[in-house]
Amino acid sequence: MKKSDIILAGVGGQGILSIAAIIGEAALAENLYIKQAEVHGMSQRGGDVQSNLRISDTPINSDLISLGGADYILSLEPMEALRYLPYLDREGWIITSSSPFVNIPNYPDADALKGELHKMKNVISIDVEGLAKEHNLPKSANVILLGAAAKVLDMVKYADLEKSVRRIFSAKGEEIVNMNLKALSIGYNTANQK
């Protein structure tokens, strides 16, 4: 049995559900089982949001990931990555945006946050917001993060994600597809250069 339990984290409105949709679609194309628990409702208004995405080659029981069970935390915000540490497996990976989203008065000190994050064993931290701006992809920071995660994601490969992006965005036109493919590759290459 092979499985990948992924916690997707961020702040309401950042686009974690799109990442989940791309990974989920890639997993389905590989005939894998998936379950994905989402948060709708009140917390989408700028609060912390998360989604549990489970992929397996055998049927999945629980919709939720157990404490200590997550193989990956993908986060669009550095403090939000740390919120789910109790769910992370000893060998689990954190792939996170390094850019803080400050919408609360008591947001922690940036250096302290960085220090806390880099205490962890397996971390990929990337300035996806900066990269998105630099490459004129303002709406694709989330896909850049997904590209970075592709470096370590086990059950869906970079090529699978590329195909998935094509399928998901095809209805929106070639321009949107190419923008997202570019974002994916920027994230992937940046992570591989680290």
């Binding site: 702040v11 309401g12 009140m42 917390s43 989408q44 208004r45 700028g46 609060g47 912390d48 157990s66 404490l67 200590g68 069970g69 403090m79 939000e80 740390l82 919120r83 540490l85 109790p86 992370l88 497996d89 000893r90 919408n103 609360i104 008591n106 947001y107 922690p108 302290a112 946050l113 806390e116 962890m120």
Partner: peptide, 18 residues
């Protein structure tokens, strides 16, 4: 269940807002 990492002390709540 093995739970290798505890709650991070640095994390604060982020309530929803208008």
């Amino acid at each position: 269940v093995e739970q290798p990492y505890g709650k991070s002390e640095i994390v604060v709540p982020r309530p929803p807002a208008l």
